[in-house]
Amino acid sequence: MKTANRLTPYMFMAPAALIMAIALLYPLGYMVWGSFRDWNPSQTIGEAEFVGLKNYITLWGDPNFRESLGVTLRFAFFVVTFEMVIGVGLALLLDRNIRGMSVLRTLFILPMMIAPVVVGLMWRYMYHPTVGTFNRTLDGLGLGKIDWLGQHALTSVIIADIWQWTPFIFILALAALQSLPRSALEAARIDGATAWQQVWHIKLPLMMPVLIVTGLLRLIDAFKVLEVILVMTEGGPGLSTEILALRISRTATEFRELGVAAAMSNYLLILLLGLTLAMFAFTRWQEARARRVRAAAEEDL
């Protein structure tokens, strides 16, 4: 009876574990295995020649890969920075009881719910050099046209991503704001804090744990973005918007170098793993601190 009880949780977890093993661990292992081989799609993995770390080393010396990595890092950095600033700013502005607030909030989070491919198409049309909304508006105002997806491709792609994902930060920041202790804010008002000082000294520091996790989540997501850019620019012009995910898919399909694509995926995986671990470590550190604080408080009772 006792052993049965101890095994029960594992029994319940077994189906999920099995699916994870088949759908996640197996392809992952396959990818790691494949990354050590010179492998093209016409071969089975067994036929491919084992080349050791050659794919990884070649990649490191490949200027195109480096360019792509640079684009990815730039994209992720700008996207997350702007989304955090705008999202948190909006949340701070809209954290109040205005008539019709719930409707407004729903409108704000709509972009997040649209399928990425649709977002990509929509923005591609809006950015269109002659018939797109933006250039027609600029033209109508007598300002010059802008070559959105040409000269300013990365900026344009970043704008589209900000449009789509700022709502994510907005709703999480708003939730964090609304769970702040009301009385601490009232105490700050009585202590003489202006609206700005309340934001700076009370609201932001108290929201920080949520904001850090939110930012890391967005960063992880930003490294994996694919569809929107694929639809909008296909990585062009040149390599200007070719983020890693896109390069991986092109390496595998166009260049027919599965081994190199797998090695590239592994680089990305390591990067994301690092971020995930950072997030994990942060929450663990917070929990440990909360425990320590509780223990100290109980000691003094």
């Binding site: 202790p181 009385s183 601490a184 105490a187 700050a188 009585i190 520091p205 108290l206």
Partner: peptide, 13 residues
């Protein structure tokens, strides 16, 4: 004026 709140309203950070 100064005020003392029921839940103390201290700044936790």
């Amino acid at each position: 004026l100064a005020m003392v709140f029921q839940d103390y309203a201290l700044y936790p950070h």
